[in-house]
Simulated scan of single mutants.
Amino acid sequence: MSMNYLLGDSIISPLGFTTEENLKAIRNSESALKLQNNSRFFEDGYYASLFDNEIIDEKFNTIGNPFSYTKLEKLMILSVNQVLDQYPNLDLSETGLVVSTTKGNIDQLEKEQFSPDRIFLWKMAQVIADFFGINKKPDVVSNACISGALAIKTANDLIAAGRFKYAIVAGGDLVSDFVLSGFQSFQAISDQPCRPFSSDRKGVSLGEAAAAVLVGPSALESGEKVEYIDAVTANDANHISGPSRTGEGLFQSISRLLNRNKIEAKEINYLSAHGTATIYNDEMEAIAFNRAELSHVPVNSLKGFYGHTLGTSALIETVITKHSLLNNELYTSLNYTDSGVSQELNIIRENKSEELEIALKTASGFGGCNLAMLLKKDR
């Protein structure tokens, strides 16, 4: 089976409308998490990473009519468009589209601007495909918070199966009243910017973003690039929302992945964790990493920069992991104070340069889903 790579990419977030703008903000330890006072659920406001809608329309107006698309559709189309701009000769007749999201256009439930079927995930994906003239029926991946990384695995698997030669993976989610009320029902939202793995963490901060990456063989790329090695998923079926107390599902996904690819834990140079800053998630990850003998590996969570962007989070974090490998950069785990988990972790506390070759990206989500992915710099 031929190798596939993470080729061109795009991150659109309140930190910036390109990947490079986002990386610059991360290098400067800038966070998009701000106090928001526009919610009926939080009397004293809440911290989240939100877009200015006027800026979205201003950007979108250069490629289409902003009134013809929902907020999320516009963000995802802008992100895909940036990827396609990097490859003007890409043959869309042999390119697929894999869309990652948890809630899609859920914000349209109480609105009547668009047809009712726009609420369906398949319809949103088709709208995006139609914008670019992608004739192959798009695939949708919606598996809680591993969706973004699972969409990359899905793209690789579909390419390997001969469905198409290249695939654009596009992800997006918004901070809607539906999402806010859901997390608040768990009393899981922090009243301060989230602090993953810290003793003073109080819960999750939410964020909205879109991202896209082109997956496929290396013919379009020269020089250093990042190979998608493999990914493994495992479901511990512990609870509809609570993670396994033993980290079993995440441990299984990591150990099976390393064993299948004959890679030892000591060969991993960087670990990009899920790190939501909730009490049980962070503890579960720490236990799983320790069981997998990864406690020595430099690890961070990017949630302090973006908040939890749901179905986009693992996609954004994979793109940033790709650039960490290419640039030999490790980024701080923003807002970390001191350890709040029972197992030792090598938390990255400041940006630094380090020779990197192999990275492990993990993600976990509601329903007991877990994913581990290996990426390798190809010189």
Rank of each mutant, 00 (worst) to 15 (best):
N22W: 03
L150N: 11
T337G: 03
A372W: 07
V226C: 08
L214C: 12
G96A: 12
T337N: 12
Y270W: 13
I12P: 04
E350S: 15
I348L: 02
L35E: 10
G8Y: 04
V341P: 02
S313Y: 09
N143I: 14
K266R: 12
N335Q: 00
N53K: 15
L214E: 10
E283Q: 15
I189R: 09
T246V: 08
I152T: 05
S222E: 11
A210E: 06
S79K: 02
S39C: 04
K202H: 07
A155R: 06
R40H: 13
A170G: 03
L7Y: 07
A286W: 03
I55N: 13
D177G: 05
T276N: 12
T332G: 02
L302V: 05
E267N: 09
L72Q: 10
P196T: 02
S339I: 06
G171R: 01
K59S: 06
S79C: 01
G304H: 04
L174Q: 13
L345M: 15
A288D: 01
G182H: 04
E112D: 14
K165Q: 15
V83Y: 00
L90I: 13
I229V: 15
F178N: 07
K322N: 05
I134W: 05
R40E: 14
A160V: 07
D200G: 00
S333E: 02
I263G: 08
M124T: 06
S272H: 08
V141D: 06
F60W: 05
L72H: 09
K103D: 03
N259L: 10
L92R: 10
P243H: 06
E344W: 05
I287W: 07
K71V: 08
V341E: 06
V80D: 01
K111A: 05
V83Q: 00
A125I: 10
P298E: 07
I268G: 03
Q82R: 13
I358P: 08
S342E: 13
L158G: 02
L375S: 09
L50Q: 02
V175W: 06
